[in-house]
Design a protein around this nucleic acid. Structure first.
Lengths: 223, 223
DNA sequence: GATGCACCTGAACGCCACCTGACTGACGGG
DNA sequence: CCCGTCAGTCAGGTGGCGTTCAGGTGCATC
C-alpha cells in the first residue's frame, strides 16, 4: 500500500538497522540511515525527503526523544515512531510528549513495525504532486487536469512521475529509464520512446496546455 | 494538549467505557458513545463530528475491525485506535489493514491511551474523504445501496470491506488477500479472483453505479 | 545536398495477469 | 441421509501490457 515512502532510521544497533532496512526495502520503501543522535539530527532534517521517522531511544550519544525534539525544532514534522527496550508506561508517555506519534517496544515483530510505519505514512501530510496543471494520483494510477482524468499503467505512471518531479527542468533519458524500470532491467532503447508516445496520446486526451517535450540528445521535460 | 477533541468510543464493557469517558472528559474532550457494532456504525459515521475513533475489537455483535471498515467505507476517515484483549501479532496487523491507526492491548494504562489519542488527534485527517455509495453492515454481513441489500459470505465481506475502506484508491492484491484471509492462511492465487467475480455478480444485483474495477498488475478499486 | 543519428510512428507479438464457469469437498441443519 | 451453503481449486480462454521491430522524419554537421 504505502507508495514508496522514504523512511528515516536512527538506530545504533547494526542488527536492528539491518533488519529494518531490509524489510522496508523489500516493501518498496527508501531508507535514510543515521547511526547515532548526531547523524540523526544531521541526516533526517527538513532537506532529507524523509516522510516517516523511526527513532531508537537508547542511542549512545543522545536520547531519541531529544533527537525528535531537535528535529521538530528544525521544522521536521514527519511522524515519528519510537523504538526502545524500555517498557515503563511513563517512558512511553514521555515519548509522545516529545512529539512522537507511536511507540514500539523491543523485541518487536517486524511485521508490526512495518504496518505501523505504513499507518503513519498514510496519515502523513499528503504531498501535492501537482505540476503545471497536472495532478498525479499515486493511489489511483491516474493523472488529472481539472475534472478530466485518465488512467495509466504502472510503467506509464512511473515514467511520467519521473519526468514530472521537476517541471521545467529536463530529466535525462538515463534517469527516466532508471526510474521507470527499477532493478536495472535491460530494455531496448526504443521502448522508452514507445512509452513517451503513449503518454503523449493519453495526455492529449485531457485538454491541458501541458506538453511532454523532447530535448534532443538530453531527455524529456514537461511544459 | 489536544484541545477539545471529539472522541467516538465503541465499547460494550460498561466499566471500560466509564473509565475512558471519565478520563477523556477530565482532559477536556467530548465523547460520543456506542455500545456495540450496530450503534458504532450508526453513531460514529461522517455526520457525527467525531475526530478520533476508539474501537473495541471484541464486540458482542461484530468485530471492531469490521466496524472500522464499515465506517471507512461510509466516508469516515477519522483516525482509529483499537482496543482489545487479543495480543497476537497477526491480530494487530489485521487491525491496521482494516484501516486502523493504532492498537492498545487490555489491560491498558489509561494515561497511555489518552496520550495515544492525543497523538492521533494531533495528526488529524487532512484528505477529502470519498464516499462509495455503498453501506457495509458488519453485524449482518450485508451490503446495501439505497434500499437494496444483498447478503455476503464472511469471506466475501472481508474482501469487499478491505477494498471499500478507501473508495477510489487502489488496494493492492496482497493487501486484499491479507485482509480477507487473516492469519496468513495459504490460498491459491486464483482464489481471490473467484471471490472478486462473486462480488461483482452480487454488486451488480444492486443497481448502483459502483463498480469493482481491477487495476492490472496492482490490485482492485471501487468506483 | 548528402549523410548520420536521435527520435517518432504505427503495428505486431507473446506472455501472463486476470476472467470465467464449473467442480470438489467440508460442514451443518432438517 | 439429503440438501444447501460456503470455501477453495482447476482448466481453459482472453486481452491488457510490456516489449520489439521496421520504417519514417527532422535536425545537425560537413
Amino acid at each position: 500500500m504505502g507508495h514508496m515512502t522514504v523512511v528515516g532510521i536512527c538506530e545504533d544497533d547494526p542488527d536492528v538497522r539491518r533488519v529494518l532496512t531490509d524489510a522496508l526495502r523489500m516493501g518498496g520503501h527508501r531508507v535514510v540511515i543515521a547511526r547515532n543522535g548526531r547523524e540523526g539530527v544531521a541526516n533526517l532534517g527538513v532537506g532529507s525527503d524523509v516522510e516517516v521517522l523511526v527513532l531508537d531511544i537508547g542511542l549512545p550519544d543522545a536520547d531519541g526523544r531529544d533527537v525528535c525534539q531537535a528535529l521538530r525544532a528544525g521544522g521536521q514534522h514527519a511522524p515519528a515512531l519510537f523504538l526502545t527496550a524500555f517498557d515503563a508506561v511513563h517512558d512511553r508517555v514521555s515519548g509522545f510528549h516529545a512529539g512522537g506519534d507511536d511507540y514500539v517496544v523491543k523485541p518487536f515483530a517486524i511485521s508490526e513495525v512495518l504496518v505501523r510505519i505504513d499507518a503513519l505514512a498514510r496519515r502523513a501530510p499528503v504531498e501535492a504532486p501537482q505540476v503545471s496543471g497536472l495532478t498525479l494520483h499515486p493511489d489511483r494510477f491516474t493523472v488529472s487536469a481539472g475534472d478530466q482524468e485518465v488512467s495509466l499503467t504502472p510503467t506509464e505512471f512511473r515514467l511520467l512521475a519521473a519526468i514530472a518531479v521537476s517541471p521545467g527542468t529536463v530529466v535525462r533519458r538515463r534517469t527516466a529509464v532508471a526510474a521507470a524500470w527499477p532493478g536495472g532491467a535491460i530494455v531496448n532503447e526504443n521502448t522508452i520512446d514507445s512509452y513517451i508516445r503513449r503518454l503523449r496520446v493519453k495526455l492529449s486526451a485531457l485538454d491541458s496546455p501541458v506538453e511532454l517535450v523532447t530535448v534532443r540528445g538530453v531527455g524529456f521535460t514537461l511544459r
